[in-house]
């Protein structure tokens, strides 16, 4: 099966800082890939380069047959980036719900404004997705009235309502109190089981072990190892992977 995401030779510099070094990564349709690694290893930057929230310095990003080269300029490039963003949904660590809109409006905003969908249809899709994350009953609330876990579930519904091909999650549970992590992971697991392709940066090793098809380990801007969760967790090859997993075992969250 051909890949739905294909990152080739991706380099990213912030000024003189070389943050991603010749990254190659492929994700197959319906695959769930978890990215783990120490803080500062470049996980977020990799994710953000895929939907061009960060401009890659070199390399190629391919999402569902759209090929975008780094360093592009002009209208054509912007149009490609736009289409890539339509194919990718993103969930942020800090939720980033729109505080001036109700839960329902947060979820209809993308379809109505970006896709030009009529409101009735958008409401229908929004309600379906809010139901999917178990928060339809909160549709008229404003975000400040939700718990962190509920906010993140709305953020997931907002991304899903755009009907993306791939979902990108950047540490979706890292800003949550421990007792709220479970509800978000459960929603993510459900979305994965429904067949969504997912690329998830996470420190939740239980989730990676249980839900991921593949685990990618990053260190210092490079992918040092990738394999099935069993192999990564039971017999990692790279000593840095072993050190990372040992730290999680002992409960250290960096």
């Amino acid at each position: 099966m051909s890949s739905i995401i294909k990152v080739t030779g991706l380099d990213k510099y912030f000024g003189r800082l070389h943050v991603l070094k010749k990254i190659d990564l492929e994700v197959k349709p319906m695959e769930v890939v978890c990215i783990i690694g120490r803080s500062g290893s470049g996980k977020s930057t990799l994710l953000r380069c895929i939907n061009f929230l960060e401009e890659p310095s070199a390399g190629t990003i391919e999402v569902d047959k759209l090929v975008v080269k780094a360093g592009g300029r002009g209208k054509e490039h912007r149009q490609l980036v736009h289409e890539v963003r339509l194919k990718t949904g993103m969930v942020f660590q800090e939720f980033n719900l729109f505080p001036h809109m109700s839960v329902l409006d947060n979820v209809t905003e993308g379809p109505v404004i970006v896709k030009g969908m009529d409101r009735a249809k958008a409401v229908q899709i929004a309600e379906m997705n809010l139901d999917r994350v178990g928060l339809l009953f909160k549709k008229d609330e404003f975000p400040n009235r939700l718990s962190g876990g509920q906010k993140q579930r709305v953020a997931i519904a907002r991304a899903l309502a755009m009907e993306p091909k791939v979902m990108l999650f950047d540490e979706p549970t890292s800003a949550l109190d421990p007792e709220l992590i479970g509800e978000v992971l459960n929603v993510m697991k459900k979305v994965a089981q429904e067949g969504m392709t997912m690329l998830v940066v996470t420190h939740e090793m239980g989730f990676a072990r249980e839900v991921a098809d593949r685990v990618v380990v990053m260190a210092d801007g490079e992918i040092i190892e990738e394999n099935t969760p069993e192999v990564i967790f039971k017999s990692p090859k790279d000593p840095r992977t072993k050190a990372l997993i040992d730290r999680y075992r002992s409960g250290g969250h960096e």
């Binding site: 929230l53 942020f92 980033n96 719900l97 993308g110 404004i113």
Partner: peptide, 15 residues
């Protein structure tokens, strides 16, 4: 984060 969330949804800078 607000701008990034909007951009990730596919909004143009003007939107």
């Amino acid at each position: 984060g607000q701008r990034e969330a909007a951009m990730a949804l596919g909004m143009t800078p003007r939107q």
